[in-house]
């Protein structure tokens, strides 16, 4: 008896899947999908690089005030970072720092200089002297800029723009003192506003009213959903790590506050140095604001 072949009978060999079979079609679709993603990735990466180069020279005026930025600068900034990942934003800060500038793109001042050139620095806080990396000291020009910059950062997505199924989010909000000017500069508002400007004052009031109403509505919505503004919990911190862009914002984002004591040093972001000088205030306000905009 002839030895039996250990190989399987090749029954399929005669009818190989034709080019149009669903099997190869699926493979082709997958390949195409990946090719598209890679293409989009290249485009986004180039855009981000160009945006960072542009923002290296921001703000456009050397005596700009980061608390009251020119509407044109603010709009451009918001536009340019819409497709940023948090890591891209970190890169922006890094590149500005290398150019000796404050990490916040709307600030024209130089970054803070550490008192000495030592790698570790001693910083006086209410809790006593703390040891901090020199690098983390030299990121911002001031606490205020740190706050404004981080306010932007928490709104950015961890997910690369080419992977975001919901597309890029709407708008990144800024922390500004001259909000009225900026609201007027919003494209949305411009569409509704008549081109004639004889009643500027009234209009400004109008706009401010509209925005206040919007904020109220958002706050109501948040309440309705049973969201209670609470302190920064571990769960909330984890929420921060994930993509916050794809969800509906229930309340207008609120500024993150610098952490208050060494007990909260885990909150330090972006090398922002903990400085406890607010111990007199009741601290639940800060905790609230920090995560108020996150869906519960």
């Amino acid at each position: 008896m002839a030895p039996k072949s250990i190989l399987k009978k090749s029954t399929v060999s005669t009818n190989e899947p034709s080019a149009s079979s669903p099997f190869t079609q699926r493979h082709r679709d997958t390949a195409l999908h990946h090719a598209n993603l890679i293409e989009q990735q290249k485009v986004v990466e180039k855009e981000v690089l160009q945006s960072i180069i542009t923002l290296l020279d921001f703000p456009t005026s050397p005596d700009a005030d980061p608390t009251r930025p020119a509407p044109s600068d603010a709009l451009r900034f918001q536009d340019l970072i819409i497709s940023f990942q948090t890591s891209d934003y970190d890169s922006l800060i890094e590149e500005r720092n290398i150019a000796d500038k404050c990490g916040y793109a709307l600030c024209p001042r130089p970054k803070k200089k550490a008192p000495s050139s030592a790698r570790k620095q001693f910083i006086e806080t209410d809790k006593g002297v703390e040891i901090v990396d020199k690098k983390t000291l030299e990121v911002w020009c001031s606490e205020d800029c740190a706050r404004r910059a981080l306010y932007v950062k928490v709104q950015l997505s961890e997910e690369p723009a080419w992977m975001r199924r919901g597309g890029v989010g709407d708008k990144i909000e800024l922390l500004v003192e001259n909000a009225a000017e900026h609201h007027k500069a919003l494209p949305l508002r411009l569409k509704q506003a008549p081109a004639s400007k004889p009643v500027v004052e009234e209009e400004e009031e109008d706009i401010a009213g509209a925005w206040a109403a919007r904020d109220d509505a958002l706050a109501d919505l948040a309440l309705e959903r049973g969201e209670k503004p609470g302190r920064l919990s571990k769960a909330n911190r984890e929420l921060l790590q994930t993509d916050i862009k794809e969800r509906v914002q229930s309340t207008p984002p609120a500024p993150p506050e610098p952490p208050q004591s060494s007990g909260q040093s885990h909150m330090a972001i972006e090398g922002h140095v903990p400085r406890a000088n607010k111990s007199n205030e009741s601290d639940d306000e800060d905790g609230q604001d920090w995560d108020k905009h996150l869906p519960g």
């Binding site: 890094e94 590149e95 720092n97 290398i98 150019a99």
Partner: peptide, 9 residues
């Protein structure tokens, strides 16, 4: 000779 080299340099 810079300690950190980035886009600027």
């Amino acid at each position: 000779s810079d300690e950190n080299v980035g886009l600027k340099q």
